[in-house]
Nucleic acid binder design. Structure first.
Lengths: 302, 302
DNA sequence: TGCGGTGAATACAAAAACGTATGGATGATT
DNA sequence: AATCATCCATACGTTTTTGTATTCACCGCA
């Protein structure tokens, strides 16, 4: 009768990449995963994983199993969400997902006051580089740089507008000169992104086209991107709130400003829950209260 | 880690109507079902079933759980089908679903020869009054009075055309007279159907409208419908193959004939399996070989 | 009102599953 | 080339889960 659970094990192994990793992800021991998989393969009479060479790769059959198991998990998560929505009490756990920067910086402080006001509600901050999958209940609430988007049954509210500008390290500017106007930018090295749609290098500033000479450094996270600017790789676009913490970088061409909207997103069913709704509303309120921090990087509130 | 299995238990209880019935349907003991449900409700912190009055009714939350669990089962069934499709060996079990009449009469004989030719393949005949849900793998192959229909991913072939005509009990005809022509039919009592779209009372015969005086008897299955005709309730439309077995009924107005197509349906994935495909093809072939039996009721082959 | 039947919860023994510890095999690293 | 690390399979003692048997509660029926 543990058929369905075996599918869950199978899915975990496929996603974790190894039986050992899947075991600790599931909260069971590695031999248990081994046995459950053996049971599954014995029931099927067909192997699900090829473990010829140490590493486990899915067989053709295994791929189908995993595909269906993923949908099973979505339904299972929907059940959990329904249970949470049912729960109107202001107690329990709320999982908030955010990217590195916000998760480590603003979010803990913002939620601390919430936790003091609602001691019965536990807070868990899940740092995810990718967007947390709210459908699979990786989190109850997610902070995102875009709205609910195409995904159905998600609700989102724009919480803050994060302002950004052009920055460069002081040493870099001392060596290569401070751009006086927009045209000068074309001669400078650019610090860019490998992935994601964070603050981008401006294509035009005040109507003039900007073509950076070269991209000297690329990062895949706001933190390392900022480190690249600090290290003097060149000029980059970063938020005022991050730049504020760096003493050795300097804003240039202050007439250039850009911004990105910060969204708070949750599943519509989960938001029916008393505690999730309370946390959601608190985050929104806190963001609005800290709007000066987000838009201009003013750290008076810290 | 048995979370998913608990949902299966919950679904079984909802569908079976009682913990005891669910237990034997799942192949476990009744206390196990009790405990699994308790575990589920403890995990939720909310009741799933109201068991105030002996009978178990779903709570609002329980209804949601069951709805999602049903979709989980569809995915789980899809996994099982994928495994069966993978299995190209001519051994294992094939479940064939049919309505009462065919399931008890023609089908066993038709599959007997198949079983002799393929001793490694076990045959199970599932008599279902409703159309077996092939998506949930209630059966591998189903005999139906209509094609695959709207359901996606089902494949069907028309196997036989079942002929039918107007019949009535000899005693009834002796008492109320044998209709000589179509117009006489309007004065006779009619044996009809409560549900389903089996052979219907003709609206027109040879161009003349037929309005039966009254419907004296309604049945919800071919067998009881025939019993109604045999009992002398009036004139009814039944298949020649069923009428052939009744000595005390008599065909009237032989110029009226109608027919219904008998389909053999299977899931496209399941049909990839060697044994299911073999059984499928055998049933089609046997139907075609027995076409005289289906269309005119000739029992030479019995 | 008493009685029989059905369905759900408890008690204890048996069985199954699990975890810790260990061994063997493969690939990476020094 | 040797060592180390990682990962999977096996062995054994323990925990957990399950099944059998029983009891309890409830509804229908006489």
């Amino acid at each position: 009768m543990d058929d369905w659970s075996d599918y869950l094990v199978c899915l975990a192994v496929a996603e974790a990449g190894s039986l050992t990793a899947a075991a600790q992800q599931l909260g069971v021991s590695q031999p248990t995963v081994t046995r459950r998989l053996q049971a599954l393969e014995q029931r099927f009479g067909e192997p699900v994983f090829d473990r010829d060479q140490g590493q486990s790769r899915l067989t053709t059959l295994g791929q189908k199993v995993v595909a269906h198991a993923k949908r099973m998990r979505e339904e299972a998560s929907a059940i959990e969400r329904a249970v949470i929505a049912q729960d109107q009490s202001l107690s329990g756990l709320v999982v908030v997902s955010a990217s590195e920067g916000l998760g480590a910086d603003w979010l803990p402080r913002a939620l601390a006051s919430f936790q003091r006001a609602n001691p019965q509600i536990g807070i868990e901050i899940a740092i995810k580089n990718h967007s947390a999958n709210l459908a699979d209940r990786e989190a109850d609430i997610a902070l995102r740089w875009n709205g609910p988007g195409t995904q159905q049954s998600l609700i989102g509210r724009r919480g803050a507008t994060v302002g950004a500008g052009l920055y460069a390290a002081r040493e870099y500017l001392d060596e290569y000169g401070r751009p006086e106007n927009v045209e000068d930018l074309a001669d400078h090295a650019c610090v860019g992104w490998t992935v994601g749609d964070f603050f981008g290098w401006p294509s035009t500033v005040s109507g003039s086209a900007v073509v950076p000479k070269n991209i000297s450094f690329k990062a895949n996270s706001p933190a390392s991107h900022l480190k690249g600017i600090e290290a003097g790789f060149g000029v980059g676009v970063t938020s005022h709130r991050l730049a504020r913490h760096c003493d050795n970088i300097e804003r240039i061409l202050p007439e250039f400003t850009t911004s990105l909207d910060l969204w708070v997103v949750a599943h519509e069913t989960v938001r029916k829950s008393g505690r999730v709704r309370a946390a959601f509303d608190h985050i929104i309120a806190q963001m609005q209260a800290d709007s000066a921090y987000f838009t201009r990087g003013e750290s008076s509130i810290l």
